[in-house]
Design a protein around this nucleic acid. Structure first.
Lengths: 187, 187
DNA sequence: GTCTATATGAAGATAGAC
DNA sequence: GTCTATCTTCATATAGAC
């Protein structure tokens, strides 16, 4: 999942697109809007990416590179509790840091389809789920894993927490997540 | 929040629109698609609603009527724990029953804007939050309230729980929600 | 309540010059 | 890397007949 293969001009497109996607959704964001945000024409944007879909893929890749790193770190832990702790804390960090874009990327219909069908995204999501599920994928474990992914990713952009600073939000989210998994909460 | 003011033809439009919105998002759903799903022409749809926006409003009203009922029931409880229990259990019921559409309605950019700006939706959302927050809107309480709304609404449509039957999903979600609020879990 | 037909604009995308 | 100009398709929306 390489971000390094992007030129500077491509990165500028991705950054501008991401901000717009977060507010208006992918389908609500036209190439004209992206071009306007960059102060260039549509044709200039098309010179960087062959289609709008490829811009969406590039934004998803950029954001998910760090999720990949987090799940890789978790998988390296032998003890299940430690693996969970590593994944939850890194995912919370990531979600808070990217709080203004994370919810869209998880819920936008276009992105959802991409994450479900376009490798390497489904594979990455399966790895995240595997760590959260543990050995026994009971109904309880699956509901808990689903709630965790959704709750962390979605809560960071909820109006109720809009004026909570990053540090507080991070620690509160982590407390809630640990509580769901029966991990020690205080540290 | 009246659903009864719709004619049969209007209700058919709303039902068809809702199914499409859930899969493709509002911006990804054209009036042509809605018309095709109903086997009529676009003009026939425009005869029922003056604009696409009004269709979106009607779908939101239809779905949120029952959330309104749930929060009204909760507000009638004097004891805070009982109010929470009433709201959580009814919201879980509602979310599970409407699991294929609930996530869209909470996250679609068009609907989100509507819920934030178009009365009576913001008022309803504020009432839900007030019950969940309780007397002291601390950071912890706000994060918990945000996580709860998001987790219940979003988890029901998560791939991980796709093949869990409604009854199991309902009881597991309720267990998780109660755990977050320190309510008794077993019953 | 539904139709045909049409207006008007904006979307994604391409050609080719600078 | 960016531009102007253009193509095609599809969007929302309206007029008026049946």
């Amino acid at each position: 999942m390489d971000t390094a293969t992007h030129t500077a001009a491509q990165s500028r497109v991705v950054d501008a697109a991401l901000e717009l996607f977060a507010v208006r959704g992918v389908n609500g964001t036209s190439l004209q809007m992206i071009a306007d945000a960059l102060g260039v024409t549509k044709a200039a944007v098309y010179h960087q990416f062959p289609s709008k879909e490829q811009i969406v893929v590039a934004t998803a890749e950029t954001e998910l590179a760090r999720l990949d790193a987090a799940v890789t770190a978790a998988e390296a832990e032998e003890d299940r509790s430690r693996a969970l702790e590593v994944l939850l804390s890194q995912v919370v960090d990531l979600a808070v840091e990217r709080r203004h874009v994370v919810s869209t990327l998880m819920h936008d219909p276009v992105v959802v389809r991409l994450l479900a069908t376009h490798e390497p995204f489904p594979r990455l999501m399966a790895r995240v789920s595997r760590v959260l599920l543990g050995a026994a994928p009971t109904a309880e474990a699956r509901v808990r894993a689903a709630m965790t992914q959704i709750a962390i990713g979605g809560a960071v952009s909820h109006p109720l927490v809009a004026d909570i600073d990053d540090d507080t939000l991070r620690s509160e989210l982590l407390r809630m997540a640990r509580r769901l998994f029966g991990l020690p909460v205080d540290r």
